[in-house]
Write a protein that binds this DNA or RNA. Structure first.
Lengths: 115, 115
DNA sequence: TCAATAGGTAGGTATTTGCCTAAGTATCTT
DNA sequence: AAGATACTTAGGCAAATACCTACCTATTGA
């Protein structure tokens, strides 16, 4: 339907969606230690390979990982820039909240000063 | 199906899923500036109220916001602790990657030293 | 008290997700 | 060249999502 939101147009949508799954987060955790082949990545999961490949595709589409094929082996690596982007989005609003707390703190401090 | 993953059991799943939507992120952005009623929050969005309420429920279930009703008005506020939790998950793996880069840097530095 | 206001419920639809099996297609390896 | 290896594609199904309209229920203010 035209009125319905169409699939994940946006980088943040895709990025956070990619992180909203334990399998995909485990892949990121693994890739943080170094690049790996698809089958090595898939080995720990009790899941058919095609299902696992879908998770990899979600991660790659979101830009969180990149992959390259040499011969019959596809190697995956983490793309930390995108993680950083998501991180920045979050800290921005944590920061906004801290600022307000700080302002409150300042206010209380001043109050203390005048007493 | 028993074999299928059951709905968002996990805090991280729920948290990241909640952030994977522009409407919900906009709510967080707004709440970072201060607490607000449901209708004030909903006003900017071209969406029926029940649809908007679903988004609020997703945010509340994820623990990203809390709400309380007084009279007929429900007030929503941000729960920054949960944002911080998600943030920590991400930075953990950004950090892992930086460590490896640092090690590489150290290696290159040493190589430079011996030359 | 009656109507406007603020929110909530019920129930319905299209799309997306997450999983599967079955059957490819390229590379190695022997 | 034949089999093993490492993915890939196709197609299918159930559950979750993201919307909607049509009511309903409390408050509050005139």
């Amino acid at each position: 339907m035209a009125n319905q939101k169409q699939a994940l147009t946006n980088r943040l949508d895709q990025g956070f969606h990619a992180l909203a799954d334990a399998t995909r987060r485990a892949v990121i955790a693994r890739l943080a230690e170094g690049e790996t082949s698809v089958s090595d990545l898939a080995a720990p999961f009790d899941m058919a390979l095609p299902s696992f490949l879908q998770h990899l595709r979600v991660l790659e589409t979101a830009g969180l990982i990149t992959t390259a094929k040499q011969g019959r082996v596809r190697t995956c690596r983490l793309e930390p820039g995108r993680l950083a982007e998501l991180d920045r989005w979050i800290t921005q609003y944590e920061a906004g909240w801290r600022q307000r707390l700080d302002r409150l703190g300042t206010l209380l401090d001043r109050k203390g000063d005048t007493q």
